[in-house]
């Protein structure tokens, strides 16, 4: 086992870095895209409502693995030729955006009407109402669900190994097929992920507490 770690340690570390990188980038871009989609749905032209709904339903109704296959293996047929890593990040972005946009929708719906009416009565312009009232209030109520989904995405990153993105799972599988050692690598991988998700969850809870602190104090 020490030999294995010595030989494959660096690969595993870069794999771990890749896992973190794809997760962080996919989550951020997915959130940004989801936010843009939600703004379009809420404030954009009405005729976009149907295509957006179809997009969200399609992404949420199909397995992430199949989406990746469509993108990575099917993409070249329509001229979308991507390497594994960009394809993986794009896949995570698209997948995340559909879920994020639904979370944000619920958040916007939860903004009390009275606050918007009050702002309008005080002469705030529509742009200011959205930026200074609706978005901040929405973010607070959506935060727990957003954090929760970001945690779910950590686990989806291992699926990128299926299109050969060299993240931790891929590195471990390479190690397994080269050394025929199965037990230790898989156990280590499982324990590693358990710890990783646990740490991210704790950080998420702390983030939530910081931003929703005042809500708890009052009640």
């Amino acid at each position: 086992m020490p030999d294995l770690l010595h030989r494959y340690g660096p690969d595993l570390l870069t794999g771990f870095g890749m896992t973190l990188f794809t997760w962080a980038l996919g989550t951020l871009l997915g959130f940004a895209l989801g936010f843009a989609i939600e703004l379009l749905r809420r404030f954009g032209p009405k005729r976009l409502a149907w295509p957006i709904r179809a997009y969200v339903e399609f992404i949420r109704g199909t397995p992430f693995l199949v989406q990746l296959f469509v993108l990575y293996y099917g993409g070249p047929l329509i001229g979308l030729r991507l390497d594994a890593l960009p394809a993986g990040v794009l896949g995570l972005t698209i997948y995340g955006s559909a879920y994020f946009t639904e979370i944000l929708r619920a958040g916007f719906d939860a903004v009390p009407k009275g606050q918007i009416e009050a702002a309008r009565a005080m002469g705030f312009t529509d742009g200011v109402i959205v930026r200074r009232i609706m978005v901040p209030v929405m973010m607070v109520s959506a935060l727990p669900a957003l954090v929760n989904f970001a945690i779910i995405l950590t686990k989806e990153t291992v699926i990128l190994s299926m299109i050969t993105v060299p993240e931790i799972m891929f590195q471990t599988q390479t190690m397994m097929s080269e050394t025929f050692a199965f037990v230790e690598p898989i156990l280590i991988l499982a324990l590693f992920f358990w710890g990783f998700v646990e740490v991210i969850s704790r950080l998420g809870r702390r983030l939530e507490r910081r931003f929703t602190h005042y809500l708890l104090e009052r009640s």
């Binding site: 339903e57 399609f58 109704g61 199909t62 397995p63 199949v66 989406q67 296959f69 469509v70 293996y73 099917g74 993409g75 047929l77 329509i78």
Partner: peptide, 13 residues
């Protein structure tokens, strides 16, 4: 791959 994976996706859907 494009046609088949899309078909699979719609089957799941």
């Amino acid at each position: 791959p494009l046609e088949i994976y899309l078909a699979a996706a719609f089957l799941y859907l």
